[in-house]
């Protein structure tokens, strides 16, 4: 893996490398850009699914950054996403600031809460952080229900749309891809730097990392803050896409969705969650709409998938992909596509 960076790349490959995309990843991304323009994917409701899947996938990337690299599962992840969403919506409603700026506000508050949570909980093992973030998630949802003067409680908070109320969903497709690409870029650049190396060391063996002179608490807080801030950013985009926010969005069940996507995609791969989000969201939406006389069937499938993946194939889709690449590693095209 190490000598991957020593290979001198030229031209477009160098640019892609700067973006942290392999040629295969770039092709996949290009396909995503054009896919909603062609039938049968150019129907409005399908584009809506695509956007929701991209939002979930981007959130999953942010989630995976802490669960895959430093082995800290943020169990209140939905609350951080929701905090970003609520902050952005409230700031936009109160002062009418342009929405890209309010999205940054959302990212800032979520990052701040993430920093405080991390500073408290990351001194100790991962289980501690799970409990604390879980409780913070519950408390945040309780606050969102109870602080009616600010969030309108269960009635739901109306938020400003990016493109007015009548705009077709396709308008949102390119911004959401931009959000996903920027998130990927930030996360992957960090993961590639020496800081990312420290993250990986901590995730694999904390004692060994300590022996090598890494201060685990500092790096873990750093990682956690970045993950939460990006979660808030994605949440803020979601708020201005969906148009109404309810406290249900902060529920632990929402965290489970992110978790399932990340684990199916493959922990520690970052791209796995994003790639899996599209078929996964489509599949569960199909289940939900085709079996509407069986409410909750999609959640049942989530749970089953989580257990089966964790017991029988812990590496998820990323491990399968790596297996395929290893199998054909002598083929020069495959090698060019995947490095």
């Amino acid at each position: 893996m190490a000598n991957e960076y020593e290979v001198q790349k030229q031209g477009i490959a160098k640019f892609l490398d700067y973006l942290c995309l392999t040629p295969l990843g770039a092709i996949g991304f290009l396909i995503l850009i054009i896919v909603p323009l062609f039938p049968p994917f150019n129907q409005d409701y399908l584009v809506r699914w695509f956007i929701l899947a991209a939002i979930m996938g981007t959130g999953a990337m942010a989630f995976d950054f802490s669960s895959g690299y430093i082995a800290v599962v943020n169990f209140g992840f939905a609350a951080f996403v929701g905090l970003g969403a609520y902050t952005s919506a409230i700031v936009a409603n109160k002062w009418g600031i342009p929405l890209p700026v309010t999205m940054l506000c959302g990212a800032f508050t979520a990052g701040l809460l993430g920093f405080i949570t991390g500073a408290i909980s990351l001194r100790m093992r991962g289980m501690f952080a799970i409990c604390l973030t879980w409780f913070i998630g519950i408390a945040m949802m309780g606050l969102a229900i109870k602080m009616v003067w600010l969030t309108r409680g269960m009635l739901g908070l109306r938020t400003a749309y990016f493109f007015g109320t009548e705009a077709p969903n396709l308008y949102y497709w390119y911004p959401v891809l931009a959000v996903a690409l920027v998130t990927w870029f930030i996360l992957k650049r960090i993961a590639r730097s020496h800081i990312g190396l420290a993250f990986k060391a901590i995730g694999q063996n904390m004692d060994a990392a300590k022996t090598s002179g890494i201060n685990p608490t500092r790096y873990r807080i750093m990682n956690f803050t970045v993950s939460c801030a990006l979660a808030g950013w994605v949440g803020a985009f979601y708020a201005h896409f969906i148009g109404i926010l309810t406290p249900e969005f902060l529920h632990t069940a929402k965290t489970v969705e992110f978790l399932v996507i990340v684990y199916i995609g493959g922990r520690g791969s970052l791209w796995g969650g994003f790639a899996v989000a599209f078929p996964f969201i489509w599949f569960t939406e199909m289940l939900r709409s085709n079996f509407d006389y069986l409410p909750g069937i999609n959640l049942l499938v989530y749970g089953l998938m989580l257990i089966v993946i964790m017991i029988f194939y812990a590496g998820g889709m990323a491990q399968f992909f790596r297996y395929l690449v290893d199998k054909w590693k002598d083929n020069p095209t495959v090698r060019w596509l995947t490095t």
Binding site: L259, L294, G296, G303, L306, M310
Partner: peptide, 24 residues
């Protein structure tokens, strides 16, 4: 490996399955 964390997440999956089986 990572028994504590994995078990926690698996019990989470069990919880989701139980709840939705009841509902179904």
């Amino acid at each position: 490996e990572g028994w504590l964390l994995n078990c926690f997440l698996i019990t989470l999956g069990i919880s989701v399955i139980f709840q939705n089986t009841h509902q179904l």
